[in-house]
Design a protein around this nucleic acid. Structure first.
Lengths: 346, 346
DNA sequence: GAAAGTAACTAACGCGCGTTAATCAAGAGG
DNA sequence: CCTCTTGATTAACGCGCGTTAGTTACTTTC
């Protein structure tokens, strides 16, 4: 158990005071340090292999240099989310550049309050990003009143918290419109998640809006709720098929769920896009690798992460961004899974 | 900026000393506290909404109650890893039960040393789990000498660090053997990653071993290295096809990579399993949803996480586990992608 | 009834660092 | 020669908590 090296050790070796060591290593400009003294300190620190203790530093400076990513979902759903790595990857990339750490937490519906309070009051983190928030999250209100900077990845209407999101409604509308332009009029909708998740309800709104603008009837029997994963997509599609309702296309608000839809349709002997056209959402890497390749709404998890981090950084600096929310672009990518109604393979 | 609530505030309100507050809230059994006093303290804490400051606590107790998950890979590879969420999900589940936090970091080859030192010496975390370690990681040696508990998710031969892994070699051997039993003798191998990653080299060894036991020639022109993602699987398969070498089956050491292989074969007009049989590795959720469903070696990311955490916990408690490494079971799942050689669809 | 406990609690130190106010040397100005 | 700056450095306090070594008050023991 080698004795831990403190800044006092560095100070002793360099023949200066601990204060000087602190000034040098933190590049404190307000106090002038003679270059050769600074060099002596740096050499001593290097020689001893000194690394400032994170806890002590956090305690003294009131900054943990760590931000939190909070996922509003249970682990079993997290485990099969192909989009999470993109978010995580993007975030970790910018964080490392800025020498900050990332604490990952999840909260299950019903326990949000306690988790948020613990995280913020205990000051484990300097700021937090809340992923896939739920409309019915009672903790949101609590967070609005806390001092800690918060960025929502996803939009909560009426919340005073800053947020980063894509325009889910418009994007979904575009996707459904694409199907309408291909001549489809009986278009089913399978959501990406339960409706308390804002992205789910917004995408559903976009679906409705597109139908309305095209003067197509909205049939609630064609709308089904999936639950993040492929299994749910599979089961919901089975039910849709069993319901006997006719449809020639499905807007699936999540590529991941769409994979389950593919599987169920295949099992039912239906061909994509010959019998059913599909448009997904997210453009996960897989979308261009499966057969048939999946038409989908592309959005960049990487950009969402970076923008969230940028916004959070400004909040942590105490700045007040002019606008409450950042909306990122999406674009429709048409691939093989969507085709004009009635046309057979060429 | 409401004043932060400290244990002193709780003590004042309860009419006791700060020490008593600490004893009560930490359930310190060594000192006897009168039940009604304890109750008074708890009531005061609740009333004030007191949460002990994490940094102060860490500094005083020398425990951060946080463990680190270190991923030896660059963010762009992390972003498309379908296996990461499983690991993360499992880990987060057990961590929450034990009221511990999770700090996620990545290191890129070449910078491991600095990152490990910083993380351990700065005492950001109580212990760490190192995911997908590389044989050529110079930091491993450093970690062996550090005091902080470390668990490798993946095996490094000759290392004195504890590890949790599946028996990659045996599992790969089983997979290849399955192909051999189906009558295949020209079996290509596409690795899951570059060979410095131990899982990649071990799976390749399993492939070689299976061939050897079956007295089949090892042809290094049939072995290609992929790089975690689908793109690499796609490109490598293209090259394999372009090389003109004959083969009737491919062992792909990663389901994710196999998806790229699927795509390339499809593009070349080859049918799976009619023309080429495929066996993958990992059993990602998608494996049973794509067409044809993918035969693969199943392993549980969840279990790997849980076992890693359990092992790490014991190390953090100062225990010395009898064995250096934990090996978890795998099992081959045969689905549609592998079939007897020469047989056409039924 | 003094010595020896025992239960219940507290004063005070230390964890390692950031930071303010103070100190000291050295030169500038008169 | 003495004051006044300026530049370079340090003593000392505080961050909020865990924890040891007490200190009380209240029994028990012979």
């Amino acid at each position: 158990m080698g004795k831990r090296i403190t800044s006092q050790d560095v100070a002793d070796l360099a023949g200066v005071s601990r204060t000087t060591v602190s000034f040098v290593l933190n590049n404190e400009q307000r106090f002038s340090i003679r270059p050769e003294t600074a060099e002596k300190v740096r050499a001593a620190a290097k020689q001893l292999g000194y690394y400032p203790n994170a806890s002590a530093r956090a305690l003294a400076s009131n900054q943990t240099k760590t931000i939190g990513l909070i996922i509003s979902r249970a682990p079993q759903y997290i485990a099969s989310d192909p989009f999470l790595p993109q978010i995580l990857g993007g975030l970790m990339e910018v964080l490392k550049q800025n020498r900050q750490g990332l604490l990952v937490e999840w909260v299950e519906p019903g326990q949000q309050l306690e988790t948020y309070l613990e995280l913020t009051r205990a000051h484990h983190i300097d700021g937090m990003i809340l992923m896939t928030p739920r409309l019915d999250d009672p903790g949101i209100k609590e967070l609005e009143e806390t001092e800690i900077p918060v960025v929502l990845m996803g939009y909560i209407p009426g919340s005073s918290l800053h947020s980063v999101d894509v325009d889910n409604l418009a994007a979904a509308e575009t996707a459904v419109n694409h199907l309408i332009e291909l001549g489809h009029s009986r278009i089913a909708c399978i959501t990406n998640a339960a409706l308390p998740y804002t992205s789910a309800s917004q995408r559903l709104e976009g679906y409705k809006s597109a139908l309305k603008k095209a003067n197509l009837d909205y049939d609630e029997n064609l709308v089904w709720e999936a639950d993040f994963d492929m299994q749910s997509g599979y089961h919901v599609t089975k039910e849709l098929l069993a319901s006997g309702r006719e449809f020639t296309a499905i807007f699936v608000a999540s590529d991941n769920v769409a994979l389950g839809v593919y599987s169920a349709l295949r099992e039912a002997g239906l061909k994509i896009p010959d019998d059913v056209s599909i448009v997904g959402f997210d453009d996960i890497p897989l979308a261009s690798f499966i057969s048939p390749t999946l038409s989908t709404v592309a959005l960049s998890g990487h950009d969402i992460s970076v923008e969230s981090y940028n916004l959070l950084t400004r909040l942590m600096r105490g700045e007040v961004p002019e606008s409450l929310s950042v909306t990122l672009p999406t674009h429709l990518i048409t691939r093989q899974s969507s085709r004009e109604i009635g046309r057979r393979a060429t």
